[in-house]
Design a protein around this nucleic acid. Structure first.
Lengths: 331, 331
DNA sequence: CTGTTAGCGCGTTCAG
DNA sequence: CTGAACGCGCTAACAG
C-alpha cells in the first residue's frame, strides 16, 4: 500500500505538507501543491480513511439507523430507496456510511448504544422512522453526543435536524384531489390512520381533518396501525357505510381496496407513499408520493452540514400526487 | 472515550495484556484474564474498531457489492433482503460491512477500485449478481487481492468462494411441479429466459431442457432479458401458441401473466425467485423461491471463513417451491 | 510557507 | 505469563 510517506518522498516534501494539500489547508504554495498532486497521481495514492479517522478524531462516518419492519413485508421498497439514496449521496459527499437496523440496538441501553457507535468512530446518525415509543433513541437525540438527522420525526436541537415532507398538506392534497376528480358528491369519509406512535400519523390526521371540514365531510377515523390486514378488516366492517376511504399508507390502501373488491362495492380509495407495489396491485388509486431516495440524500447533506458546524433545523421536502398503473411501471 | 489504556490501569496490568485477552490469545493466566474482563465490564469499554483495523492491518471489514438495477424496479425487494441478511449476520460475526453499489465503481479501472477498497481498509467482498460482462469484477476476483464470495456466479479460486442455489434443479422442479399439478397434457413449453450474461441463465436453461426432454415437451426459448416488458411482449406474440409458460424470474412471470390476461387466454405460468410482490399481483402461480436473506448470511459466513484462512469453495443452498396468494401474505 | 514532532487507540514483537 | 517499546497511516500543533 502506497502511503502518505511515499508521496512525500516522491514529491520531495515533508509528510505534513502532503497532509495539508490533501485536506485543502490554505497555507501551501501553488508550486508545492502541484508537485504533491502530481506525485499523488503518479503513485495512485488514495488516503487511508481509517488512519485519517483515527488521527483526526473526526471520522466522517455516519450510521444509517433504519427500522426494517419485517411485519410489513412489502415495505422493503421504502427501506431500500432510503438506503440507496443515502449511500449514493454519501460517496458524493465523501462520507462513509454504515447501516444499522433497529433490531440490533433494541434492548440495549443508551450507554451501550453510544459506546457501540463510538467504537465504530461514528459521529453522525440518520434515523429513519423513529416513533414516540423509541425512548432510547429519544435519549440518544437529547444526549447530543452525535450529530443526528431525523427522517419523519420532528425533533430538533443544536445538533439535531429533521427532514420530512409536509405530511399534513400531502394528506390534504391527495384526499381533496381524489374527491375533485369525481363529480359525485361525497359525504362520508373513512380515514384509516397509521400507528399512533408514529409522528407522521398525527400530522396526517390534521390534514384529513382540514379537508373534511373544508369539504363538509362526515369524518370517521379508525386506527389501521399501518397494517394491511387491519385496514382490510376495518374496511370489511365499516367500508360499505363510507363514500370514500383514505388511508395513511399505500399498503393499507391496498388492503382496503381488496376488501372492497371482496365486498363487491366500489368507493374511491387513496393511499400515501407512492410505492411501486401499488402499480402491481392492479388497482387504480391516488396517492401522495414521497421521493424516499431524495429524502435520504437530503438527510445526508444535512448531517454533513451539522458535522461541519451547522445548527439543527427543520427541512420540508416536497411530495407529489401520483396515480400509477401497471403499464406505467414497466414501460 | 474509555480506551484500552484505562482498562489496563483499572485492572493493574499492562496495555498489551488487555489486548491479549481481547483477542483471545492463549498465554494469559485465568486470574489476570478475569481481572481484565471485570475492568472492561466496569468501565463499559468497547474496543475501537478503527484503531484496531489500523494497527492490525486486518480490518474485518467487508464490502457488500450489489447490483442495484434501477431498471427492474420492483427488484428492490431482493436487494434489501440480501442486505439485511448480510448485515444481520455481520454483527453476529463481528464484522463491519459497507454497502457499495455497482454504479459507484462502474467506469473505474481495476486499480482504482482496488485502491478505493484498500483506502477503506476492506479485506473481504461479497458480490451479488456479477455477470459475465462485468470484466473489471472478474479481474478483481482473479487478482485475489481480497477474499471474495460471489453470490450467483460460479467462479472459485483460493481466495474466492461462491454460494448459490442449484439453479438447474430449481428451474426443473418448478416447471415439473406446475405441470404435474394439472391433469392436462401439455405439449408446448415456452420458456422466457433471463439475460444471457447472467450466470444463472445458463443453468436455468439446462433445467428447462432437462424437464422438456423428460416430459416430451416441445420447447421454445425466448430471451426475456429479465425484463417484465420484454416478457409481456414475447407472450403477446408467442403466448397463445404455448400450453405453458415458464419464466426465469417472477417479474417476467408477472409480465407474461398480464399479457395472457389481456389476450384473454389462460395458460399456467411459473416464475422464479419467490418475491412478495407476486402475492400482490393477484395471480396464482408457482415459483422457485430463493431465501435471499439466508443466502446473504451464508455468504457472510463464508467470507469470514476465507478471512480466517479458509480456501475457496462452492456452496449450494436449498430452494423451495411456493405458491403465494395475497391473503397468505398479509395474514 | 515548510518541516519536525507528538500522538490517535490498538496490535505485536521481544525481553524479562 | 507479563510489560515496555515500536509502529500502523495520518492529523495537528509547533518551530523554523
Amino acid at each position: 500500500m502506497v502511503s502518505i510517506k511515499d508521496v512525500a518522498k516522491h514529491a520531495g516534501v515533508a509528510i505534513s505538507t502532503v497532509s495539508k494539500v490533501l485536506n485543502h489547508y490554505p497555507n501551501v504554495s501553488e508550486a508545492t501543491k502541484r508537485k504533491v498532486n502530481e506525485a499523488i497521481k503518479e503513485l495512485g495514492f488514495v488516503p487511508n480513511a481509517v488512519a485519517a479517522a483515527l488521527s483526526s478524531k473526526r471520522s466522517g462516518r455516519v450510521a444509517l439507523l433504519i427500522n426494517l419492519n419485517t411485519q410489513r413485508q412489502a415495505i422493503d421498497e421504502i427501506s431500500m430507496r432510503y438506503l440507496s439514496g443515502a449511500i449514493n449521496r454519501a460517496v458524493e459527499l465523501n462520507l462513509d456510511v454504515i447501516t444499522v437496523f433497529f433490531s440490533m440496538i433494541r434492548d440495549k441501553s443508551l450507554e451501550e448504544i453510544v459506546r457501540y457507535l463510538q467504537s465504530q468512530s461514528i459521529d453522525g446518525i440518520i434515523i429513519f422512522g423513529m416513533s414516540t415509543k423509541d425512548t432510547v433513541l429519544h435519549e440518544l437525540v437529547e444526549s447530543q453526543i452525535f450529530k443526528i438527522v431525523l427522517v419523519d420525526a420532528p425533533v430538533i436541537n443544536e445538533s439535531t435536524s429533521c427532514v420530512w415532507v409536509d405530511q399534513e398538506q400531502a394528506q390534504y392534497d391527495v384526499v381533496k384531489h381524489t374527491i375533485q376528480m369525481s363529480r359525485y358528491h361525497y359525504k362520508k369519509l373513512l380515514y384509516i390512520a397509521g400507528k399512533r406512535e408514529a409522528y407522521v400519523t398525527e400530522n396526517r390526521l390534521h390534514g384529513i381533518e382540514r379537508v373534511a371540514e373544508e369539504m363538509k365531510l362526515e369524518l370517521t377515523v379508525r386506527d389501521g396501525d399501518f397494517s394491511e390486514l387491519a385496514a382490510r378488516n376495518i374496511t370489511l366492517e365499516a367500508g360499505e357505510d363510507a363514500d370514500i376511504i383514505a388511508c395513511a399508507s399505500d399498503l393499507m390502501a391496498i388492503g382496503a381496496m381488496r376488501a372492497l373488491i371482496d365486498m363487491d362495492v366500489f368507493h374511491p380509495v387513496c393511499g400515501f407513499d407512492g410505492i411501486t407495489l401499488m402499480g402491481y396491485a392492479g388497482m387504480q388509486m391516488n396517492t401522495a408520493k414521497q421521493d424516499f431516495a431524495m429524502i435520504a440524500a437530503r438527510a445526508l447533506e444535512e448531517v454533513n452540514r451539522l458535522l461541519t458546524g451547522g445548527e439543527g433545523e427543520e427541512i420540508i421536502v416536497a411530495h407529489t400526487l401520483e396515480r400509477l398503473q401497471y403499464l406505467d411501471i414497466i414501460c
